[in-house]
Design a protein around this nucleic acid. Structure first.
Length: 723
DNA sequence: TAAAGTGAGGTTTTT
DNA sequence: CCTCACTTTA
């Protein structure tokens, strides 16, 4: 039966249509910012189903974030007008998880294996470091966690790590090994492990591999430039069965190289898969031509691009406003003033985004917004399932599901406080280690032999028996009531109620929101697996930490880092802190590759803007307690002058400042020195004047010497010479 | 068991 | 300089 698919076509341009209907076995779509990349994937899936009569069951669509995967599924279902329960559309991690739940046995896991989120993983690693007798100030668990994850991203087990004479790598690999053994023993799977284990499963198990190779006739991958090694290899194994493989990405928007993403995977795709058809989506539907041309001009400075130039038939639009602020307060004031102008023109606040390179910059901006009592929403805090009170409640649920969950046990054994201190826990841990059993079992044994202080013992018995009653009381209850009862009995609500002020109240609110989340929880079509709702809820919480903030649908200014702005669009965008050392960040300036990534980040930031873009920088910025005089970002010079307009000072924003106006010129009053001046000192050598206070005979200057020491010196005594 | 003190660290983040 | 994690202390 032929289905009318004209609707699929109507809204697509030619390259988009070519991508959607391509019959090539291997297809690479280079999709520029705002060129309709999600639309192309969604329509292609719809096309395959409606026009080519491909069973949704045979299609695999992979994205990076849960949000993207939800959006994708939603859009596809909108087009095909039906729900597709058996269609696999998910994140790499979600899909891997699903495969492991199905093939736990072949993968060498217990049926009830638990997922460690990064905080759980951190705690486990910390415990491992301690148990190995290592000093955790010398061996920071964070760094080891990073190391281990990096190895896993690169498909390396501890035995595969090449340490090559590097003492640190050697030691960290040892920790990796012990961590590996612990996870094996307790059947714990961290995020990296989900992928690595699936990769190893497919690679070593012919039967499972063949099954999925036969099943998936079409594989579609979004944001291909963000794939890391293990993800690439995983896809490769699946596609090697002869599936049609479409990857969509943009090398110019690769901003996650620092966490293992390899944008080379785009090039690699074309060499690994012969006769790959390449389609470029270069028409941008988002931004004015001014913004687009500026972004193009900036990204042109990068080497080794796949080649792509965005164009638009939209109007030219307003020039980009450049503002050189006196300091960061002035910058923030200017931004807020401009937003008020926007509002006065009848525009709305949720059309506005303020972007910055690093989170620390948000505070000054936040304060300026607060002063004008404008509503704002800041991205980047803890997400729902990452909050302490929620993790505590989830630990109760995890323990209810499986008493062997040590991570959960440790978390809640003394929360709320029940008189079980560090000593008692040490005894329990020692027992568990000695007998190689879980903490829960160790408690049972210790109680039997009276190996604990009477009070602690009693308290633990109470704690443990409460789980047994809870279990029998919640059997056959729907998930929502189960969660409700578990939280009620945990004592967490009472505990947080006692907390002072606002904090305790929001925590109690969050706990009841968790009950709400349980009520609304729909297992994402895991139906073929016989898994309890509770377990699915627990896994869901680990794999999808939820939104950054509870969504208030009030109109608000959006504040976020350039990284988190990727994929979003706003009519009005501010990019702040456009300064050397901040953006590009000082840690990225030396390495050409990292510098190129910074430039891509700039490109991403600029292309977020639909109508109007502001770029601001501060001549002076307080950083780590001292004043910095950063030159404007090199990216600013890469924007053609004819596309910009310099905002004159004394306009809508005043330059008021606590310090005297002479500071603007940078001259140290009644001396021969000025800020930024190079000077030489008899003992310390050459340096640059960073700051000053006082004047004339009392003037002191702060000099940053080339030996990279900074000193405050009295001008009257220091015998500084101008160079 | 919470409050006060100490010390390190300060780029970007998803799963 | 400010924040955060962690330790010490009343």
């Amino acid at each position: 039966m032929r289905v009318d698919v004209s609707e699929i076509f109507e809204i697509l341009n030619e390259p988009q249509r070519n991508a959607v209907t391509s019959e090539s076995k291997n297809l690479l779509v280079l999709a520029g910012a705002g060129s309709g990349k999600t639309r192309v994937i969604a329509h292609r899936v719809a096309w395959l189903i409606k026009a080519e009569n491909i069973n949704p069951h045979s299609i695999l669509t992979v994205t990076f974030t849960n949000k993207a995967s939800r959006e994708m599924r939603g859009r596809i279902e909108d087009i095909v007008q039906e729900e597709m329960g058996n269609f696999w559309c998910g994140t790499f991690h979600g899909i891997s998880h699903r495969l492991l739940r199905t093939h736990w046995e072949e993968a060498g896991l217990r049926k009830e294996f638990a997922i460690l989120d990064s905080e759980d993983q951190y705690r486990v690693i910390k415990r491992v470091v301690k148990s190995m007798g290592l000093d955790d100030t010398k061996w920071p668990p964070r760094q080891i966690q990073w190391f281990i994850n990096k190895q896993k991203d690169e498909c390396r087990r501890s035995k595969d790590v090449e340490v090559a004479d590097d003492y640190f790598a050697e030691k960290m690999t040892e920790v990796y090994k012990v961590y590996e053994e612990l996870c094996e023993r307790e059947s714990l799977v961290d995020f990296g492990e989900l992928l690595l284990r699936v990769y190893i499963l497919l690679k070593s198990n012919e039967e499972v591999l063949k099954h999925y190779q036969r099943r998936f006739s079409h594989i579609l991958v979004d944001e291909f430039q963000d794939t890391n090694e293990v993800q690439y290899q995983f896809l490769r194994l699946l596609a090697d069965g002869g599936a049609c493989f479409m990857s969509v990405g943009d090398d110019d928007q690769s901003i996650y190289g620092w966490r293992g993403a390899k944008s080379e995977n785009i090039n690699r795709f074309t060499t690994d898969y012969k006769n790959t058809e390449i389609i470029r989506l270069e028409q941008n539907y988002r931004s004015t031509s001014v913004i687009l041309n500026a972004a193009n001009a900036v990204i042109k400075n990068n080497q080794g691009r796949m080649g792509k130039e965005l164009w638009t038939d939209q109007k030219e639009g307003e020039p980009i406003s450049i503002y050189s602020a006196y300091n960061e307060d002035d910058e923030a004031r200017y931004v807020v003033g401009s937003i008020q102008n926007w509002v006065n023109q009848g525009r709305s606040l949720d059309e506005v985004a303020i972007l910055y390179r690093s989170n620390a910059q948000s505070r000054v901006l936040e304060e300026a917004i607060l002063r004008e009592s404008l509503p704002y929403k800041i991205y980047g805090g803890l997400r729902f399932y990452e909050r302490a009170e929620i993790k505590n409640a989830m630990s109760y649920l995890r323990l209810l599901y499986g008493r062997e969950d040590d991570a959960a046990f440790e978390r809640v054994i003394n929360i709320p406080p029940r008189g079980i201190g560090a000593k008692t826990i040490d005894i329990i841990r020692a027992k568990a280690a000695e007998k190689n059993i879980s903490l829960w079992k160790a408690c049972e044994e210790l109680i039997d032999v009276e190996g604990l202080a009477a009070r602690a013992s009693q308290s633990i018995q109470g704690f443990m028996s409460s789980f047994n009653t809870l279990e029998s009381d919640t059997r056959d209850l729907p998930l929502k009531d189960l969660v409700d009862m578990a939280i009620e009995r945990s004592g967490l609500i009472e505990y947080h109620k006692k907390e002072a002020g606002e904090k305790g109240r929001t925590r109690v609110e969050n706990l009841s929101e968790l009950v709400g989340a349980a009520r609304d929880f729909e297992p994402d079509s895991f139906d073929e697996l016989e898994e309890s709702a509770l377990k699915m809820f627990i896994d869901h919480a680990a794999l999808d930490a939820g939104e950054t903030q509870a969504s208030e649908h009030e109109s608000a200014i959006q504040l976020m880092t350039l990284h988190s702005a990727k994929g979003l669009e706003f009519p009005l965008v501010f990019i702040t802190g456009f300064e050397e050392g901040l953006f590009p960040h000082k840690l990225s300036i030396e390495d050409p590759n990292q510098l190129q990534e910074e430039r891509r980040l700039c490109y991403v930031g600029m292309t977020r803007s639909m109508e109007k873009l502001y770029v601001t920088h501060a001549e002076m910025r307080n950083l780590y307690g001292s004043e910095n005089f950063n030159p404007a970002s090199r990216f600013l010079r890469e924007i053609p002058d004819e596309l910009t307009v310099e905002v004159r000072t004394g306009g809508n924003v005043s330059r008021t400042s606590k310090t005297s106006s002479s500071r603007v010129s940078g001259e140290v009053p009644d001396t021969n020195f000025k800020l930024g001046q190079r000077v030489v000192h008899e003992a310390f050598g050459e340096g640059v004047i960073l700051n000053y206070e006082g004047e004339g005979a009392n003037a002191r200057v702060e000099v940053n010497f080339d030996t990279s020491t900074t000193k405050w010196l009295m001008v009257a005594y220091a015998k500084l010479q101008n160079i």
